[in-house]
Amino acid sequence: MPAAANGVAIRVRDLVVGFGGARILDQLSLDVFRGEVLGFVGGSGQGKSVLMRTIIGLVPKREGTIEVSGVDLGRASAEERQATERRWGILFQQGALFSSLTVRQNVQFPMREYLEISDRLLEEIAVAKLEMVGLKADVVDKFPSELSGGMIKRVALARALALDPEIVFLDEPTSGLDPIGAADFDNLIRTLQQTLGLTVFMVTHDLDSLYTICDRIAALADGKVIAAGPMATMLASEHPWLKAYFHGQRGRLAGPAGPARAMGAAGAA
């Protein structure tokens, strides 16, 4: 069982992020432990994507510190930053595949830049990565516009894993997939996480994902993390938003059989 004992992969302290007059994240603190799958939930527009984008450096922060694998990104030198960037892979909400490149070129793109390897090896690695995410060899020459939503997510995941990262950021990986596809994708993430020993930071709205693959859950409201811990902590929380979220109609239905469901039903009654 992954726990705090493994060390902290991402440490966020007193983070403040805003746009113009709006303060989106207000003194937010959060730890992501090495080797865990952290599910990050929160109402729409609360700033989940903003937090993820701030950690990976796409949105500037106003205050606070962000440490990834012990490196303070605010004070790191360019080399340290680049070394850290190479240790993470990102799956954007809509995949963000390069539309002018084929599936093969998309997966090879980061490797071509950073690894000095022959074309043949590059080819083999790309095919291996695509197989790892459950894609067959016949998609390699297709363009992103010719793929279904689920396939795009898989290719994007393969690209995120191209440089063998230690940390993977996923922004709503199962949104837009049918329930079976979403469950498959959940399993895929779990399998990869376990075989590759990844740390996973996953923004999600999908209660099934939270129940089945997340070791811990953190909830965002009013710019702060209002609760963090395993599912039982969430279910026991008295916070009104968490109660509505986990004990609402959808929450009850998604809960698996066993204590979680019992607690959910008890809470709703």
Binding site: G57, F92, A96
Partner: peptide, 17 residues
């Protein structure tokens, strides 16, 4: 513009380009 809309530009940036 459409690359920006689809976050392709962000993806590029996060890969260190």
């Amino acid at each position: 513009g459409s690359m920006r809309m689809r976050e392709e530009v962000d993806a590029l940036r996060t890969m260190g380009f």
